[in-house]
């Protein structure tokens, strides 16, 4: 079967695939290499050095970046956790709740943050917080992040739940397990790979967000993306490349984790 599929391969496609990967990775690799540049200038190569990594932690901007990093990671952690809980609960109703009148409308509501252009959501949320007189700051960022993380957590969780046949819970209940017990001891463990993927995806989406955060954050608070954006606007400095490289490595670790979780999932 596999050799059969490979028979319909086109020779040029392999070249284009490598080109595609080259395009995707080249800019990231170049920035990583230049983050180790000893020179103050971003144009000339002055030898290998870790000075810009030291600069990020001890330099003049270090306090700003540290508080931005704290805000970003704490918001991502809380938003992803809450969004995952809400999405799991929604998936139970949507996948295991039979047919009901509001099902399509609910699905539309869940998809809304994905379908609507991010800048439109950002404007809408800014207007909303302003209209109800909510002071913009850490809490408004957190509320916004919880909301737009829900669909990203929902997709892997509901996909996983659809993949689990009902017979397992049925068997548990036939053996006199209550519905709560069947959920906690049978369905939940089987759903774990989906829940973990959903959580990680939501976490990364929250950590990465710039546009919505920039609109709802108000003055005097920064997350990593808004702090990086502000710095870049004043000119590309090597310390930005060091921060970018660290975030890049962090994202790669998270994707790898998510990938490994889905591999465990396959062997079941």
């Amino acid at each position: 079967m596999q050799t059969g599929a490979a028979r319909f391969d086109f020779p040029g496609f392999k070249v284009l695939t490598f080109l595609c990967l080259f395009i995707l990775y080249a800019p990231l690799l170049v920035v990583t290499v230049y983050s180790f540049n000893d020179s103050r200038s971003i144009t000339t190569w002055g030898g290998f050095s870790l000075r810009w990594y030291v600069d990020v932690f001890t330099g003049p901007d270090s306090a700003k970046f540290q508080s931005a990093a704290f805000n970003s990671f704490s918001i991502a952690l809380i938003a992803a956790t809450v969004a995952t809980a809400i999405a799991t609960s929604a998936a139970l109703a949507m996948v295991r709740g039979g047919r009901f009148k509001l099902r399509t409308a609910t699905f539309g509501l869940i998809s809304l943050p994905i379908l609507v252009p991010e800048i439109v959501t950002a404007v809408a949320m800014l207007i909303f917080f302003n209209a109800i007189g909510f002071t913009r700051g850490y809490t408004s960022i957190l509320i916004a992040h919880i909301a737009f993380c829900i669909p990203f957590a929902y997709l892997p969780i509901s996909a996983r739940m659809q993949g689990i046949e009902g017979v397992y819970e049925q068997a548990a209940m036939d053996l006199y397990a209550g519905r709560a017990q069947a959920f906690r001891r049978v369905l939940l463990p089987m759903m774990m790979p989906g829940i973990i993927s959903g959580f990680l995806l939501a976490f990364i989406i929250s950590l990465d967000d710039f546009i919505i955060t920039n609109f709802v954050k108000g003055a005097g608070i920064e997350t990593l993306p808004t702090a990086i954006f502000g710095s870049v606007k004043q000119g590309l400095r090597p310390n930005i490349m060091a921060i970018s490289t660290m975030l890049l490595v962090f994202s790669t670790v998270i994707v790898t984790l998510s990938w490994l979780v889905s591999r465990i999932d396959r062997t079941k």
Binding site: A85, I86, A87, S89, A90, L92, A93, M94, V95, R96, G97, G98, F100, L102, T106, L109, I110, I150, M161, Q162, G163, I164, E165, G166, V167, E169, Q170, M173, R179, A182
Partner: peptide, 21 residues
């Protein structure tokens, strides 16, 4: 998937969807 218990959470679905709504 889920045919046998596809309705298992039907009685609670209002509560389950409330946080999302």
């Amino acid at each position: 998937g889920g045919n046998a218990t596809s309705e298992a959470y039907a009685p609670a679905r209002g509560w389950l969807l409330l946080p999302t709504w």
